Amino acid sequence: MNRFPLLIATLSFTLLLAGCNQSATTDASQGDGSKKLVMGVSMLSMQNEFIVNVNDEMTKKAQEAGVELITVDAERSALKQVEQIESFIAQKVDAIIMNPCEVEASSPAVAKALAANIPIINVNSETSAKPSAFVGSDDVESARIAMKFIADKLGGKGNVVMMHGYMGQAAQLKREQGAREVLKQYPNLKLLAHQTGEWDRAKAMALMENWIQSFGPQINAVFAQNDEMGLGAVKALTDAGLKDKVVVVSIDAIPDALQAVKKGTLDATIFQNAEQQGAKAIDTAIKAAKGQPYEKQTLIPFQLVTKANLSTFLK
């Protein structure tokens, strides 16, 4: 029996099947036949709960829209972030979303993306170089709200310590600006000390312990530029038996902070809407990638959270 024709037929069928499968992989990515959008995302730090919340919402919205995200962690390094953007440019992604590490040092990434004609959207934090669009909140406003709350609680007089975020990042610079604007309005409200806790709970706890040793009962209030640091300060003050005498306010309204407000250990937090920032960043990037009109700046308001309105924010 001559098996050669049978072998040819089998081989032809196998190749045909392989061709069909390859076609399905490359062309069926979008049901309407259009090319599937691919976007590069570089996040400041996936060790930061708020940043993770923004990223989770972006991932969810991208999946709903049929967009592929290539997400990387810059690990707080602007140098690494610029290299990540260069990699996205080499991969010819349709758009880039960047959560900048630093105002100045992350700016070359914006310039490189724009030079390659790839839209770049800054989410949550800013660069001095102007991107295609910015989606976030006005960090100056958040600090004004926090420091005004402290001023009201202290009757306009007392000693405040301020915990900075990662130095040189937009949120750190703008939250310091907002806090100092309010301090100028209250001459009897004194900034006793200020130092970075690098957005980190453990580092903030150690910093607060140092301040307690240095100033003790002189400290009347703590303004922490994010909740992680605020919770670190609360732990140090509680351990020292001073929490009942010190007002602590922080920013972001992450779940741990909301629970601390509920318990009364954190006096207030400022709600920053991670879900809206993430969702609107994806919406803007999709429009920019498709050449559709989009908002060049989307600002989402901050809101003060205390025990009085806590139920609105608890999920």
Rank of each mutant, 00 (worst) to 15 (best):
M1P: 10
F4Q: 05
P5A: 04
L6W: 14
I8T: 02
A9D: 01
T14L: 15
L17R: 03
A24P: 04
T25H: 14
G31P: 11
D32H: 08
D32T: 01
G33N: 05
K36D: 14
L44N: 12
Q47F: 13
N48Y: 13
E49A: 08
V52T: 08
T59I: 11
K60A: 09
K61M: 04
A62L: 05
G66E: 01
I70R: 12
V72W: 11
E75K: 15
R76Y: 09
R76H: 07
K80Q: 12
V82M: 02
E83A: 15
E86F: 13
K92W: 07
D94P: 03
A95P: 05
A95S: 04
V103S: 15
A105Y: 04
S106Q: 01
A111M: 15
A113F: 06
L114F: 06
N117L: 08
I118V: 03
P119H: 11
P119R: 05
I121W: 09
E126S: 14
T127M: 10
S132C: 12
S132A: 13
A133T: 05
S137I: 10
E141I: 11
S142I: 00
A146P: 03
K148T: 14
I150S: 04
D152H: 07
G156W: 07
G158I: 08
N159V: 10
V161T: 03
M162P: 05
M163V: 05
G165F: 05
M167I: 13
A170P: 00
A171N: 13
Q172N: 14
E176T: 11
Q177Y: 06
Q177I: 02
R180P: 03
K184Y: 02
Q185K: 11
L189N: 08
L191P: 02
A193E: 02
Q195E: 12
A202F: 10
A204G: 10
A206G: 06
E209N: 11
N210K: 09
I212Y: 04
I212H: 08
Q213P: 02
Q213R: 12
Q218S: 14
Q225S: 11
D227Y: 07
D227E: 11
G241A: 00
D244W: 13
K245M: 07
V248H: 06
V249S: 00
V249A: 10
I251T: 00
A257K: 00
V261P: 09
D267C: 00
N273T: 00
A281G: 01
I282D: 00
D283N: 10
A289C: 10
E295L: 13
Q297Y: 03
Q297F: 09
V305M: 04
K307D: 01
N309G: 02
N309F: 07
L310P: 06
F313C: 02
L314C: 09
